[in-house]
Design a protein around this nucleic acid. Sequence first.
DNA 1: GTCTATAGCGGGATAGAC
DNA 2: GTCTATCCCGCTATAGAC
Lengths: 201, 201
Amino acid sequence: MNVVNESPRRKELTRLAAQLFVQEGFDRTTVRMLAQEMGIKSGSLFHHFRDKQEILAAVIEEGTQNALMLARQALDECGGSASERLHAMARAHLETLLTDRNAHVVALYEWRRLDAAARDHLSHLRDAYEELWEQVIDEALEAGLVHGDRFLVSRFVMGALNWTVRWYDPEGPRKPEDLAHELVAMIAPSTHSQPGQSTKV
Amino acid sequence: MNVVNESPRRKELTRLAAQLFVQEGFDRTTVRMLAQEMGIKSGSLFHHFRDKQEILAAVIEEGTQNALMLARQALDECGGSASERLHAMARAHLETLLTDRNAHVVALYEWRRLDAAARDHLSHLRDAYEELWEQVIDEALEAGLVHGDRFLVSRFVMGALNWTVRWYDPEGPRKPEDLAHELVAMIAPSTHSQPGQSTKV
DNA sequence: GTCTATAGCGGGATAGAC
DNA sequence: GTCTATCCCGCTATAGAC
C-alpha cells in the first residue's frame, strides 16, 4: 500500500507532517496547518493521502524504518563487545529521537492514534525494532554487564531514552552521544569502553 | 482559585475526568463524554468548571498533589538508608501511576495541553515533586549506590518509571513494588536492601 | 444544580474546474 | 497536481427555564 506510493513528493510531505505532529501533537494538527506548511491548499492534500490517518501512518512507518536502519548500521559499525553494542544502540536511538526530532518521536508518542488497520500493518516493524533492543540487552546480560530480567531491563532502558524527548534541550551542551554514554555508565558502571570509539567524556 | 473550590462533588467529577483523559487523551475527550460519564448533560458541566481547560488543570493539580503526598509519606515510613529511600520513592511513584491509573498519568502525559496561565500556576507543584526526586537521587549518589550526573540520573530514572504506563499490564503477575525493586536492582546492583521491608522477590 | 436548545466555530473531506 | 468552493459534522460554550 505504502511501498508502492513512495514518490519523492510524498516523502517530502511526510517529513513536513512529522515536524508538525511533534510540535503540536497529531490531534491538534489540522489538515489546514499541514497544507500551509507544505505550501498548498488543504484540498490538495487529499491527492497525496486518502485521509489524515494515512499521513500519520506514513510518518510512523518512515520513522520506525529509519530508526531500524540506523540502529542496524550502528551495530554493524561498532566493535563487537556487549558494552560497545549497548552504547551504539543507545546512541543511534537518541540520535533518531533528538537530532531530527521528527518521525521517530511521532512513532513513539502517537502510536495510539493509529487506527486498528494501520496498527496491524505497522506492528511488525515496531516489533522488529524492539527485538533488536532485546537482543542487545540479552548480550549485556550474558556478559554480566547488567543484571535483571530481560524484558524489564529493555523496557526500563527504552523508557529512560524515550523520555529524553520531554526534557532534552538541543541548544544545551549535551549531545545525544553524551546521554548514551551516561546511561550506559549508570546501568553498567564497572564497564570500561574500548578505545576506537570515544565514549569517554 | 482551585483551593476555594473544593466541593466533594467537584472532586468526584475531577476523578472521573482523569479516568477518561487517560483512556482517550485530553484532546479526544469531548465534554459530552465527560458529562455522560458523570451522569449529567454537557451543559451542566460548565456549572462546575469554567471550561475544558479548567478540568484539565484540576486533574493535574490533584494528580501531582497526590503523588507528592504519597511520596513524602513513603519516605517518612521507610528506613533511612539511601537504598531504602530510593526504593520507597520508586514504589510510591509507580503506585500512583499504575494502581489508580488516573490523575498522575494525566499530569505527566498531558502537561503540554495546559494553557500558559495554568502551567504557571502548577509548575511550582511539579517542581516540588521533581526536587524530591533529585534529593533522593543525591543521597544515592553520595552513598555510592549510583554513579553519574545528578540531573541526568534523575531524568533517566523518572523516564524509565514514567514509560511503564505504556506497557504495564495490571492483570499481569508483576506488581508496582516488583518493578520498583527491579529498577533499583538495575541501577544499584551491589545493594542489599535492609530487612523489615521485603524488597527481595 | 440540572435541563433543553442552540449559537458559533472549525474540523475533515469532496467535487469539479483548471 | 493544485485550486476554489463548500458540505456536513461534531465540538465548546452559552442562555434561560425549571
